[in-house]
Write a protein that binds this DNA or RNA. Structure first.
Lengths: 218, 218
DNA sequence: ATATAAATTTAGGCAAACCTAAAAAATAAT
DNA sequence: ATTATTTTTTAGGTTTGCCTAAATTTATAT
Protein backbone atom coordinates (compact mmCIF):
# COMPACT_ATOMS: atom_id res chain seq x y z
CA UNK A 1 0.00 0.00 0.00
CA UNK A 2 2.84 2.37 0.78
CA UNK A 3 4.26 4.15 -2.25
CA UNK A 4 7.80 5.21 -2.92
CA UNK A 5 8.47 8.92 -3.27
CA UNK A 6 8.70 8.47 -6.99
CA UNK A 7 5.41 6.62 -7.24
CA UNK A 8 3.77 9.29 -5.11
CA UNK A 9 5.04 12.00 -7.40
CA UNK A 10 3.61 10.22 -10.41
CA UNK A 11 0.21 9.82 -8.74
CA UNK A 12 0.13 13.44 -7.73
CA UNK A 13 1.10 14.62 -11.20
CA UNK A 14 -1.54 12.48 -12.85
CA UNK A 15 -4.09 13.79 -10.39
CA UNK A 16 -3.25 17.41 -11.11
CA UNK A 17 -3.35 16.89 -14.85
CA UNK A 18 -6.57 14.90 -14.81
CA UNK A 19 -8.54 17.58 -12.98
CA UNK A 20 -11.78 16.94 -11.16
CA UNK A 21 -13.30 15.02 -14.04
CA UNK A 22 -10.39 12.58 -14.12
CA UNK A 23 -9.51 13.01 -17.78
CA UNK A 24 -6.95 10.75 -19.39
CA UNK A 25 -3.41 12.08 -19.01
CA UNK A 26 -0.73 11.61 -21.64
CA UNK A 27 2.69 10.07 -21.11
CA UNK A 28 4.41 13.17 -22.45
CA UNK A 29 2.56 15.52 -20.12
CA UNK A 30 3.60 13.46 -17.13
CA UNK A 31 7.20 13.39 -18.32
CA UNK A 32 7.21 17.16 -18.83
CA UNK A 33 5.80 17.81 -15.36
CA UNK A 34 8.20 15.52 -13.60
CA UNK A 35 11.24 16.44 -15.64
CA UNK A 36 11.71 12.83 -16.74
CA UNK A 37 11.58 11.20 -20.16
CA UNK A 38 8.61 9.48 -21.75
CA UNK A 39 10.33 6.11 -21.60
CA UNK A 40 10.67 6.36 -17.84
CA UNK A 41 7.02 7.30 -17.55
CA UNK A 42 5.88 4.27 -19.52
CA UNK A 43 7.85 2.09 -17.16
CA UNK A 44 6.29 3.60 -14.09
CA UNK A 45 2.80 3.47 -15.56
CA UNK A 46 3.11 -0.27 -15.89
CA UNK A 47 4.14 -0.50 -12.28
CA UNK A 48 1.29 1.66 -11.02
CA UNK A 49 -1.09 -0.28 -13.20
CA UNK A 50 -0.20 -3.61 -11.64
CA UNK A 51 -0.88 -1.98 -8.28
CA UNK A 52 -4.33 -0.99 -9.57
CA UNK A 53 -3.68 2.67 -8.90
CA UNK A 54 -4.22 3.68 -12.51
CA UNK A 55 -6.02 2.36 -15.57
CA UNK A 56 -3.49 2.05 -18.34
CA UNK A 57 -3.83 0.86 -21.90
CA UNK A 58 -0.89 1.23 -24.26
CA UNK A 59 -0.91 4.44 -26.29
CA UNK A 60 -4.12 5.50 -24.58
CA UNK A 61 -3.09 7.68 -21.65
CA UNK A 62 -3.98 6.94 -18.04
CA UNK A 63 -6.71 7.66 -15.54
CA UNK A 64 -6.60 7.19 -11.80
CA UNK A 65 -8.62 4.42 -10.22
CA UNK A 66 -10.58 5.18 -7.06
CA UNK A 67 -7.71 3.79 -5.08
CA UNK A 68 -5.20 5.92 -6.98
CA UNK A 69 -7.32 9.02 -6.55
CA UNK A 70 -7.51 8.42 -2.84
CA UNK A 71 -3.75 8.05 -2.58
CA UNK A 72 -3.23 11.20 -4.61
CA UNK A 73 -5.64 13.15 -2.43
CA UNK A 74 -3.80 12.09 0.70
CA UNK A 75 -0.54 13.34 -0.78
CA UNK A 76 -2.22 16.60 -1.73
CA UNK A 77 -3.61 16.81 1.80
CA UNK A 78 -0.16 16.44 3.27
CA UNK A 79 1.35 18.92 0.86
CA UNK A 80 -1.22 21.59 1.65
CA UNK A 81 -1.17 21.04 5.39
CA UNK A 82 2.59 21.44 5.40
CA UNK A 83 2.29 24.58 3.27
CA UNK A 84 -0.14 26.00 5.76
CA UNK A 85 2.24 25.12 8.58
CA UNK A 86 5.20 26.73 6.83
CA UNK A 87 3.35 29.99 6.26
CA UNK A 88 1.29 30.25 9.44
CA UNK A 89 3.77 28.91 11.94
CA UNK A 90 7.21 29.24 10.43
CA UNK A 91 6.54 32.54 8.66
CA UNK A 92 7.58 31.47 5.20
CA UNK A 93 6.31 33.64 2.37
CA UNK A 94 4.16 31.86 -0.15
CA UNK A 95 6.72 31.70 -2.88
CA UNK A 96 9.23 29.90 -0.66
CA UNK A 97 7.12 26.97 0.42
CA UNK A 98 6.71 24.81 -2.62
CA UNK A 99 10.08 23.08 -2.67
CA UNK A 100 10.01 22.25 1.02
CA UNK A 101 6.42 21.03 0.93
CA UNK A 102 7.39 18.76 -1.97
CA UNK A 103 9.71 16.99 0.44
CA UNK A 104 7.50 17.05 3.51
CA UNK A 105 4.53 15.56 1.65
CA UNK A 106 6.40 12.26 1.41
CA UNK A 107 6.88 11.73 5.13
CA UNK A 108 5.12 8.48 5.94
CA UNK A 109 3.14 8.68 9.13
CA UNK A 110 -0.60 8.78 9.32
CA UNK A 111 -0.58 9.92 12.93
CA UNK A 112 1.76 12.77 12.01
CA UNK A 113 -0.68 14.11 9.44
CA UNK A 114 -3.63 13.97 11.79
CA UNK A 115 -1.73 15.55 14.68
CA UNK A 116 -0.50 18.28 12.35
CA UNK A 117 -4.04 18.89 11.18
CA UNK A 118 -5.22 19.23 14.78
CA UNK A 119 -2.32 21.47 15.71
CA UNK A 120 -3.18 23.76 12.81
CA UNK A 121 -6.85 23.65 13.85
CA UNK A 122 -8.10 21.91 10.73
CA UNK A 123 -7.43 24.56 8.10
CA UNK A 124 -9.69 24.26 5.06
CA UNK A 125 -7.50 26.09 2.57
CA UNK A 126 -3.77 26.29 2.07
CA UNK A 127 -1.90 29.59 1.68
CA UNK A 128 -2.61 29.64 -2.06
CA UNK A 129 -6.32 29.26 -1.36
CA UNK A 130 -6.42 25.64 -2.51
CA UNK A 131 -8.75 23.42 -0.52
CA UNK A 132 -7.19 20.86 1.82
CA UNK A 133 -8.77 17.41 1.45
CA UNK A 134 -9.95 15.88 4.70
CA UNK A 135 -8.55 12.62 6.01
CA UNK A 136 -10.95 10.66 3.85
CA UNK A 137 -9.75 12.56 0.80
CA UNK A 138 -12.87 14.68 0.40
CA UNK A 139 -12.41 18.18 -1.00
CA UNK A 140 -14.98 20.77 -0.16
CA UNK A 141 -15.78 22.78 -3.23
CA UNK A 142 -15.57 26.52 -3.26
CA UNK A 143 -17.76 28.48 -5.65
CA UNK A 144 -14.81 29.93 -7.47
CA UNK A 145 -14.13 30.09 -11.17
CA UNK A 146 -11.18 30.71 -13.40
CA UNK A 147 -10.33 34.34 -14.04
CA UNK A 148 -10.27 33.61 -17.75
CA UNK A 149 -13.98 32.81 -17.60
CA UNK A 150 -14.94 36.06 -15.91
CA UNK A 151 -16.90 38.34 -18.22
CA UNK A 152 -15.86 41.86 -19.12
CA UNK A 153 -16.51 44.66 -16.63
CA UNK A 154 -16.98 42.18 -13.81
CA UNK A 155 -15.16 42.43 -10.53
CA UNK A 156 -13.74 39.43 -8.76
CA UNK A 157 -11.61 38.59 -5.74
CA UNK A 158 -8.59 36.40 -6.12
CA UNK A 159 -9.14 33.11 -4.48
CA UNK A 160 -6.25 30.91 -5.42
CA UNK A 161 -3.30 30.74 -7.70
CA UNK A 162 -1.20 27.76 -8.65
CA UNK A 163 1.91 27.13 -6.62
CA UNK A 164 4.39 27.53 -9.47
CA UNK A 165 7.05 29.73 -7.90
CA UNK A 166 7.79 31.72 -11.04
CA UNK A 167 4.15 32.54 -11.52
CA UNK A 168 3.78 33.44 -7.86
CA UNK A 169 6.71 35.79 -8.04
CA UNK A 170 5.41 37.38 -11.22
CA UNK A 171 1.99 37.88 -9.72
CA UNK A 172 3.30 39.39 -6.54
CA UNK A 173 5.46 41.69 -8.67
CA UNK A 174 2.45 43.03 -10.54
CA UNK A 175 0.51 43.30 -7.31
CA UNK A 176 -1.79 40.30 -7.45
CA UNK A 177 -2.20 38.14 -4.37
CA UNK A 178 -4.97 36.27 -2.64
CA UNK A 179 -7.70 38.72 -1.77
CA UNK A 180 -6.82 41.22 -4.50
CA UNK A 181 -9.83 42.79 -6.24
CA UNK A 182 -9.63 42.49 -9.97
CA UNK A 183 -11.86 44.22 -12.49
CA UNK A 184 -11.81 42.86 -15.98
CA UNK A 185 -11.51 45.97 -18.15
CA UNK A 186 -11.07 44.38 -21.56
CA UNK A 187 -10.93 40.89 -22.94
CA UNK A 188 -9.04 40.44 -26.15
CA UNK A 189 -11.13 38.00 -28.09
CA UNK A 190 -8.47 36.38 -30.26
CA UNK A 191 -5.66 35.74 -27.80
CA UNK A 192 -7.77 35.70 -24.63
CA UNK A 193 -5.45 38.16 -22.90
CA UNK A 194 -7.12 40.60 -20.54
CA UNK A 195 -6.61 44.06 -19.14
CA UNK A 196 -7.15 44.15 -15.40
CA UNK A 197 -7.60 46.88 -12.84
CA UNK A 198 -5.97 45.68 -9.64
CA UNK A 199 -7.43 46.89 -6.34
CA UNK A 200 -8.89 49.87 -8.19
CA UNK A 201 -5.40 51.24 -8.84
CA UNK A 202 -3.06 49.70 -11.37
CA UNK A 203 -3.84 48.48 -14.83
CA UNK A 204 -2.10 45.33 -16.00
CA UNK A 205 -2.33 43.27 -19.15
CA UNK A 206 -2.10 39.52 -18.58
CA UNK A 207 -1.95 36.61 -20.98
CA UNK A 208 -4.51 33.86 -21.19
CA UNK A 209 -2.17 31.32 -19.66
CA UNK A 210 -1.87 33.44 -16.57
CA UNK A 211 -5.60 34.14 -16.46
CA UNK A 212 -6.08 30.43 -16.71
CA UNK A 213 -4.10 29.91 -13.55
CA UNK A 214 -5.87 32.38 -11.33
CA UNK A 215 -9.05 31.40 -9.61
CA UNK A 216 -11.49 34.00 -8.33
CA UNK A 217 -14.76 34.45 -6.54
CA UNK A 218 -17.28 36.97 -7.81
CA UNK B 1 27.92 19.00 -0.53
CA UNK B 2 24.40 17.65 -0.19
CA UNK B 3 24.22 14.05 0.95
CA UNK B 4 21.74 11.36 0.02
CA UNK B 5 19.53 10.01 2.78
CA UNK B 6 21.67 6.92 2.88
CA UNK B 7 24.92 8.83 3.17
CA UNK B 8 23.40 10.93 5.92
CA UNK B 9 22.40 7.83 7.82
CA UNK B 10 25.91 6.47 7.63
CA UNK B 11 27.41 9.74 8.86
CA UNK B 12 24.97 9.90 11.73
CA UNK B 13 25.65 6.31 12.73
CA UNK B 14 29.41 6.79 12.64
CA UNK B 15 29.01 9.92 14.71
CA UNK B 16 26.95 8.16 17.36
CA UNK B 17 29.35 5.27 17.60
CA UNK B 18 32.45 7.43 17.66
CA UNK B 19 31.26 9.49 20.58
CA UNK B 20 32.63 12.87 21.53
CA UNK B 21 36.20 11.73 21.26
CA UNK B 22 35.73 10.54 17.66
CA UNK B 23 36.96 6.98 18.18
CA UNK B 24 37.40 4.72 15.19
CA UNK B 25 34.23 2.85 14.31
CA UNK B 26 34.16 -0.65 12.86
CA UNK B 27 32.48 -1.78 9.69
CA UNK B 28 30.49 -4.41 11.53
CA UNK B 29 29.15 -1.97 14.10
CA UNK B 30 27.92 0.32 11.37
CA UNK B 31 26.29 -2.58 9.56
CA UNK B 32 24.58 -3.73 12.74
CA UNK B 33 23.22 -0.28 13.50
CA UNK B 34 21.92 0.34 10.04
CA UNK B 35 20.58 -3.15 9.47
CA UNK B 36 22.77 -3.61 6.41
CA UNK B 37 25.59 -6.01 5.69
CA UNK B 38 29.31 -5.37 6.12
CA UNK B 39 29.89 -5.52 2.38
CA UNK B 40 27.46 -2.67 1.82
CA UNK B 41 29.17 -0.64 4.50
CA UNK B 42 32.58 -1.06 2.92
CA UNK B 43 31.17 0.25 -0.33
CA UNK B 44 29.69 3.31 1.29
CA UNK B 45 32.82 4.01 3.30
CA UNK B 46 34.77 4.30 0.08
CA UNK B 47 32.25 6.74 -1.23
CA UNK B 48 32.26 8.89 1.91
CA UNK B 49 36.03 8.76 1.93
CA UNK B 50 36.35 10.23 -1.55
CA UNK B 51 34.07 13.02 -0.36
CA UNK B 52 36.50 13.64 2.51
CA UNK B 53 33.78 13.11 5.09
CA UNK B 54 35.58 10.25 6.79
CA UNK B 55 39.13 8.99 7.14
CA UNK B 56 39.18 5.40 5.95
CA UNK B 57 41.99 2.92 5.73
CA UNK B 58 41.19 -0.67 4.83
CA UNK B 59 40.66 -2.95 7.83
CA UNK B 60 41.19 -0.01 10.15
CA UNK B 61 37.79 1.37 10.95
CA UNK B 62 36.76 4.95 10.23
CA UNK B 63 36.76 8.33 11.89
CA UNK B 64 34.87 11.42 10.84
CA UNK B 65 36.78 14.36 9.39
CA UNK B 66 35.90 17.84 10.58
CA UNK B 67 33.69 18.20 7.57
CA UNK B 68 31.99 14.87 8.28
CA UNK B 69 31.49 15.76 11.91
CA UNK B 70 29.90 19.03 10.93
CA UNK B 71 27.50 17.28 8.56
CA UNK B 72 26.64 14.73 11.22
CA UNK B 73 25.97 17.41 13.78
CA UNK B 74 23.61 19.19 11.43
CA UNK B 75 21.66 16.00 10.92
CA UNK B 76 21.54 15.46 14.67
CA UNK B 77 20.40 19.05 15.05
CA UNK B 78 17.54 18.48 12.65
CA UNK B 79 16.58 15.19 14.25
CA UNK B 80 16.41 16.67 17.74
CA UNK B 81 14.60 19.82 16.71
CA UNK B 82 11.97 17.75 14.98
CA UNK B 83 11.67 15.51 18.04
CA UNK B 84 11.12 18.55 20.15
CA UNK B 85 8.48 19.79 17.73
CA UNK B 86 6.69 16.46 17.70
CA UNK B 87 6.46 16.30 21.48
CA UNK B 88 5.92 19.94 22.36
CA UNK B 89 3.64 20.98 19.52
CA UNK B 90 2.05 17.85 18.13
CA UNK B 91 1.70 16.07 21.47
CA UNK B 92 3.50 12.91 20.54
CA UNK B 93 4.74 10.81 23.41
CA UNK B 94 8.47 10.33 23.44
CA UNK B 95 8.36 6.72 22.37
CA UNK B 96 6.46 7.56 19.17
CA UNK B 97 8.81 10.13 17.77
CA UNK B 98 11.90 8.30 16.68
CA UNK B 99 10.66 6.81 13.43
CA UNK B 100 9.12 10.05 12.23
CA UNK B 101 12.14 12.12 13.22
CA UNK B 102 14.30 9.69 11.26
CA UNK B 103 12.42 10.79 8.18
CA UNK B 104 12.14 14.48 8.97
CA UNK B 105 15.87 14.84 9.65
CA UNK B 106 16.54 14.32 5.95
CA UNK B 107 14.46 17.23 4.68
CA UNK B 108 16.86 19.50 2.83
CA UNK B 109 16.30 23.13 3.61
CA UNK B 110 18.56 25.27 5.70
CA UNK B 111 15.96 27.97 6.08
CA UNK B 112 13.44 25.41 7.30
CA UNK B 113 15.71 24.30 10.12
CA UNK B 114 16.41 27.84 11.26
CA UNK B 115 12.77 28.86 11.13
CA UNK B 116 11.79 25.74 13.03
CA UNK B 117 14.42 26.54 15.65
CA UNK B 118 13.01 30.06 16.05
CA UNK B 119 9.45 28.82 16.17
CA UNK B 120 10.38 26.42 18.95
CA UNK B 121 12.26 29.24 20.71
CA UNK B 122 15.70 27.69 20.42
CA UNK B 123 15.32 24.64 22.60
CA UNK B 124 18.61 23.40 24.04
CA UNK B 125 17.60 19.80 24.72
CA UNK B 126 15.38 17.35 22.94
CA UNK B 127 12.67 15.34 24.72
CA UNK B 128 15.17 12.63 25.64
CA UNK B 129 17.43 15.20 27.29
CA UNK B 130 20.00 15.12 24.52
CA UNK B 131 21.52 18.48 23.64
CA UNK B 132 20.56 20.12 20.33
CA UNK B 133 23.59 21.40 18.39
CA UNK B 134 23.34 25.01 17.28
CA UNK B 135 23.43 26.00 13.61
CA UNK B 136 27.23 25.91 13.61
CA UNK B 137 27.17 22.39 14.98
CA UNK B 138 28.23 23.36 18.48
CA UNK B 139 26.80 21.33 21.32
CA UNK B 140 26.39 23.16 24.56
CA UNK B 141 27.17 20.93 27.45
CA UNK B 142 24.37 19.97 29.70
CA UNK B 143 24.56 20.56 33.38
CA UNK B 144 26.11 17.72 35.16
CA UNK B 145 24.09 14.88 36.50
CA UNK B 146 24.67 11.81 38.59
CA UNK B 147 26.08 8.87 36.75
CA UNK B 148 23.32 6.74 38.19
CA UNK B 149 20.78 8.81 36.23
CA UNK B 150 22.48 8.37 32.86
CA UNK B 151 20.46 6.21 30.53
CA UNK B 152 21.80 3.04 28.96
CA UNK B 153 24.06 3.34 25.91
CA UNK B 154 24.80 6.97 26.70
CA UNK B 155 28.28 8.38 26.95
CA UNK B 156 29.34 10.77 29.64
CA UNK B 157 32.45 12.50 30.85
CA UNK B 158 33.38 12.40 34.50
CA UNK B 159 32.97 15.76 36.03
CA UNK B 160 33.64 15.41 39.68
CA UNK B 161 33.66 12.77 42.33
CA UNK B 162 33.19 13.07 46.04
CA UNK B 163 36.25 13.56 48.15
CA UNK B 164 36.06 10.30 50.07
CA UNK B 165 39.62 8.98 49.81
CA UNK B 166 38.65 5.34 49.69
CA UNK B 167 36.30 5.98 46.80
CA UNK B 168 38.91 8.02 45.00
CA UNK B 169 41.44 5.26 45.39
CA UNK B 170 39.01 2.68 44.17
CA UNK B 171 38.06 4.78 41.19
CA UNK B 172 41.62 5.44 40.18
CA UNK B 173 42.34 1.76 40.51
CA UNK B 174 39.62 0.87 38.01
CA UNK B 175 40.71 3.69 35.74
CA UNK B 176 38.10 6.35 36.42
CA UNK B 177 39.18 9.92 36.98
CA UNK B 178 37.95 13.37 36.07
CA UNK B 179 37.77 13.59 32.30
CA UNK B 180 37.30 9.86 31.81
CA UNK B 181 34.81 8.94 29.17
CA UNK B 182 32.23 6.49 30.38
CA UNK B 183 29.73 4.62 28.31
CA UNK B 184 26.86 3.00 30.13
CA UNK B 185 26.68 -0.47 28.62
CA UNK B 186 24.07 -2.04 30.86
CA UNK B 187 21.98 -0.97 33.79
CA UNK B 188 20.84 -3.67 36.10
CA UNK B 189 17.30 -2.76 36.93
CA UNK B 190 16.97 -4.32 40.37
CA UNK B 191 20.19 -3.42 42.11
CA UNK B 192 20.98 -0.32 40.00
CA UNK B 193 24.49 -1.51 39.31
CA UNK B 194 25.94 -0.66 35.94
CA UNK B 195 28.42 -1.99 33.45
CA UNK B 196 30.67 0.76 32.15
CA UNK B 197 33.06 1.04 29.26
CA UNK B 198 35.89 3.30 30.38
CA UNK B 199 37.65 5.40 27.76
CA UNK B 200 36.50 2.93 25.15
CA UNK B 201 38.75 0.23 26.62
CA UNK B 202 37.96 -1.48 29.87
CA UNK B 203 34.67 -2.79 31.08
CA UNK B 204 33.88 -2.42 34.74
CA UNK B 205 30.86 -3.23 36.82
CA UNK B 206 30.07 -0.68 39.51
CA UNK B 207 27.50 -0.66 42.28
CA UNK B 208 24.73 1.88 42.65
CA UNK B 209 26.38 3.53 45.64
CA UNK B 210 29.42 4.32 43.54
CA UNK B 211 27.35 5.43 40.57
CA UNK B 212 25.54 7.69 42.95
CA UNK B 213 28.73 9.47 43.86
CA UNK B 214 30.04 10.20 40.41
CA UNK B 215 28.92 13.30 38.60
CA UNK B 216 29.11 13.46 34.83
CA UNK B 217 28.38 15.64 31.84
CA UNK B 218 26.80 14.20 28.73
C1' DA C 1 -4.98 8.00 -48.91
C1' DT C 2 -0.60 8.18 -48.19
C1' DA C 3 3.35 10.60 -46.37
C1' DT C 4 5.08 13.04 -42.58
C1' DA C 5 5.22 14.17 -37.87
C1' DA C 6 4.39 13.39 -33.12
C1' DA C 7 3.65 10.43 -29.29
C1' DT C 8 4.55 6.21 -27.13
C1' DT C 9 6.71 1.95 -26.24
C1' DT C 10 10.56 -1.38 -26.39
C1' DA C 11 15.34 -2.60 -25.86
C1' DG C 12 19.51 -2.13 -23.80
C1' DG C 13 22.36 0.59 -20.32
C1' DC C 14 23.72 3.11 -16.07
C1' DA C 15 24.16 4.51 -11.05
C1' DA C 16 22.85 3.91 -6.27
C1' DA C 17 22.39 0.95 -2.59
C1' DC C 18 21.57 -3.19 -1.33
C1' DC C 19 22.67 -8.49 -1.31
C1' DT C 20 25.45 -13.43 -1.00
C1' DA C 21 29.52 -16.05 -1.27
C1' DA C 22 34.33 -16.33 -1.39
C1' DA C 23 38.92 -14.37 -0.47
C1' DA C 24 42.01 -11.79 2.38
C1' DA C 25 43.52 -9.62 6.56
C1' DA C 26 43.53 -9.06 11.45
C1' DT C 27 42.77 -10.96 15.94
C1' DA C 28 42.51 -14.62 19.34
C1' DA C 29 43.65 -19.16 21.11
C1' DT C 30 46.31 -23.02 21.87
C1' DA D 1 54.11 -19.43 16.26
C1' DT D 2 50.79 -21.67 14.04
C1' DT D 3 46.08 -22.54 13.75
C1' DA D 4 41.39 -21.11 14.26
C1' DT D 5 38.11 -17.50 14.40
C1' DT D 6 36.36 -13.14 13.43
C1' DT D 7 36.32 -9.07 10.68
C1' DT D 8 36.65 -6.87 6.49
C1' DT D 9 36.99 -6.62 1.65
C1' DT D 10 36.29 -8.14 -3.13
C1' DA D 11 33.60 -10.06 -6.81
C1' DG D 12 29.54 -10.70 -8.96
C1' DG D 13 24.18 -10.07 -8.67
C1' DT D 14 19.60 -7.65 -7.93
C1' DT D 15 16.16 -3.82 -7.89
C1' DT D 16 14.60 0.88 -8.62
C1' DG D 17 14.34 4.63 -11.37
C1' DC D 18 16.42 6.93 -14.57
C1' DC D 19 18.58 7.40 -19.52
C1' DT D 20 19.26 7.16 -25.10
C1' DA D 21 18.23 5.24 -29.41
C1' DA D 22 15.37 2.65 -32.24
C1' DA D 23 10.86 0.72 -33.30
C1' DT D 24 6.05 1.12 -33.27
C1' DT D 25 1.63 3.27 -33.08
C1' DT D 26 -1.37 7.19 -33.55
C1' DA D 27 -2.33 11.76 -35.35
C1' DT D 28 -1.80 15.36 -38.88
C1' DA D 29 -1.33 17.31 -43.40
C1' DT D 30 -1.32 17.49 -48.09
Amino acid sequence: MIQTTSEENYLKTIFHHAGISNNAVSTNDIAASLGTKAASVTEMLKKLSTQKLIRYKKYNGVTLTDSGTKQALLIVRKHRLWEYFLVEKLKFSWDEIHEVAEQLEHIQSEVLVERLDSFLEHPRFDPHGDPIPDKKGVIKKSDSQKLIDVTEKKEAIVNLVTDQPELLRYLSKIGISIGSKLKVMEKNSFDQSMLLLINGKNKVQISSSIANNISVQL
